[in-house]
Design a protein around this nucleic acid. Structure first.
Length: 566
DNA sequence: GCGATCAGAT
DNA sequence: CACATCTGATCGC
């Protein structure tokens, strides 16, 4: 869940996806997509009042987001203040201080985010450099290289900061089957069922949120049917979706919902009723889309799991996996990465610093390399959705023997052995875990405007908090605890798990056992454990001697680039 | 009575 | 496991 406070360091007079608190003073608003957790404060009376007194403040979003937003009566008052922007059309926006008359110009570009209908990323280019706010996104490996406006000529634009959807920015979520693979699994399950008789129906148990429409349209095409939903109103101006949904329940594919009675239907499922028009009992299976993930080396990857006699779980993700995020960042190589999801018990400053990439050694390498080497090759590929070769199998099935497979099987996408994007100068993933201190130039931009608060996390991360006091000691300490907490997230594939010493479960009870640091707390995660002094001592010695602290299973030691084997 | 916030469930 | 949302309890105005 996003905990982004709404503002970016470089352009603090604009607010994105947050509309409360400090954001009430913004000079321009941006909404990346129409999910409630990105609309906090958007229906607030305070904001409404402010708009009535302002002549310049506007809300910018995509056309689809505007449509979805205004469709909801609670946000209808935005009508006269929303400015929809075309995708991939740089637009100059004047940020006006209405008190002083000062104006700052910034060019914003909407890039498709693949998260839900209308979802976009915002690229800002202006006096304070280029920054990319990703909103929430699901992009496949290589997608960044296909976005024209992330490039200048044949080069990637120099990005100062990426404000990142870090939902699955954790090695536990190394891979999530691609959209295409998930869709194919769901299609196969549905096809096998509804072909048996016209009384065989499926219920897609979807959450109340935009983002499943992709399923509806593809399944609609595949089976030549419409999908039963509760309302068509939000799609009335979107023929591409509208034609695939219906409020007529006489169809074999349902995504209808019944907020109250769902529990009553637990045994029997379909919210709109369990008998056909002629009174015949329907034969119902339910499919619940939910996120499934697999480790780096996992090969068995069923996207459909049977959870009961007539219920299934199907893989479906709104967010990019760890390896997809990794690919994205490796390609863009921003100076700073600011995660949108801050773990409870940590400040944004800690995590931000931790994620800084382009460390000193990288910069040195860049500085001294001939220019030609800097070019990052762009991969030209056909548009989305025209191929059923799934990324997923490209990086799993190809490199090994077949394990025994289960009931729902997918065929492998073969023959599409494209090369890894990013080129040979892509940073190794380990670079992002550096314990190096900030370079001077990075440090100098870390001005604090509020005290280094230790807010419990997710709600109001401390974007403008103190980053300056991040000493090397702090970095080391943080690195240790971060890894420690990862080691407890028992991955589905232990080989991918970072292995660290066992630790004491009573972490919170014994804070004094930790090395003194004014800016550091033990994470309060229930399953996390405090390091024992002996363990810490050993780790510090290793760190001091430059030894690798993170132990990777399999693969014969370090040095493997992030894209190897793909 | 409304909004904000949190716990809990799905 | 996760997400995005809804409901209901509680608190403050």
């Amino acid at each position: 869940m996003s905990s982004f406070a709404g503002r970016m360091r470089e352009y603090p007079t604009v607010s994105l996806d947050r509309f409360d608190r400090e954001n009430l003073h913004a000079q321009a608003y941006f909404l990346s997509h129409c999910h409630k957790d990105h609309m906090k404060g958007l229906k607030g009376p305070l904001l409404k009042r402010k708009l009535q007194f302002s002549r310049t403040v506007r809300l910018y979003c995509s056309f689809v987001t505007k449509e979805l937003l205004l469709n909801n009566p609670k946000y209808a008052f935005w009508e006269e203040y929303v400015v929809a922007l075309e995708l991939e059309s740089p637009t100059q926006i004047s940020l006006v201080d209405e008190a002083s008359g000062e104006v700052e110009e910034v060019v914003v570009t909407l890039l498709p985010a693949g998260h839900c209908p209308g979802s976009v990323m915002f690229l800002f280019e202006g006096r304070q450099g280029n920054v990319l706010y990703t909103g929430d996104f699901r992009l496949a490996a290589g997608d960044a290289s296909r976005m024209e406006l992330l490039h200048s000529g044949s080069r990637v634009k120099d990005i100062q900061s990426v404000y990142l959807d870090s939902t699955f920015y954790d090695p536990r979520f190394y891979q999530i089957p691609s959209r295409e693979v998930c869709l194919r699994g769901i299609s196969e399950l549905i096809g096998n069922w509804i072909s048996q008789s016209s009384y065989h129906v499926v219920w897609l148990n979807c959450k109340a949120a935009y983002g499943y429409e992709y399923l509806f349209t593809n399944l609609g095409d595949e089976f030549g049917t419409q999908i039963h939903v509760n309302s068509l109103a939000m799609f009335k101006k979107m023929p591409e979706i509208l034609s695939y949904v219906t409020t007529d329940r006489r169809t074999q594919i349902h995504a209808c919902r019944h907020p109250k009675d769902e529990e009553f239907f637990q045994g029997n499922r379909l919210p709109c009723g369990c008998t056909a028009a002629d009174g015949t009992p329907l034969r119902i299976i339910s499919i619940k889309p939910s996120t499934m993930w697999f480790g780096e080396r996992t090969k068995k990857t069923n996207v459909i799991i049977k959870t009961g006699s007539s219920s299934y779980r199907a893989c479906f993700s709104f967010h990019s996996s760890y390896s997809e995020i990794k690919d994205f960042l490796s390609y863009l190589r921003p100076v700073n990465i600011v995660p949108s999801v801050v773990p409870i018990g940590r400040t944004l400053a800690e995590v931000t610093l931790r994620l800084m990439c382009r460390n000193r050694s990288d910069d040195a390498a860049i500085t001294y390399k001939p220019l030609g080497v800097l070019k990052r090759s762009r991969v030209q590929r056909p548009a989305y959705g025209d191929t059923d070769t799934a990324n997923y199998f490209d990086c799993t099935e190809s490199n090994g023997e077949d394990d025994d497979d289960e009931e729902e099987e997918e065929e492998e996408g073969k023959g599409d052995t494209r090369t890894a994007e990013g080129g040979e100068d892509a940073p190794k993933w380990e670079d992002f875990f550096t314990t190096e201190p900030l370079s001077d130039s990075q440090n100098s931009q870390s001005h604090s405007c509020c005290s280094p608060s230790r807010e419990t996390g997710s709600q109001t991360p401390d974007l403008f908090g103190d980053v300056e006091d991040q000493t090397p000691e702090n970095l080391e300490t943080f690195s240790l605890t971060m890894s420690a907490s990862l080691s407890n997230h028992s991955s589905q594939n232990l080989d991918d798990t970072l292995i660290l010493p066992q630790q004491n479960p009573n972490a919170k009870a014994e804070p004094e056992e930790l090395p003194a640091s004014p800016d550091f707390d033990i994470p309060s995660t229930p399953e996390s454990k405090a390091p024992q002094p002996d363990d810490l001592l050993q780790l510090y010695r290793k760190l001091a001697s430059g030894e690798e602290v993170v132990i990777r299973g399999g693969r014969g030691g370090g040095g493997g680039g992030p894209v190897e084997g793909q």
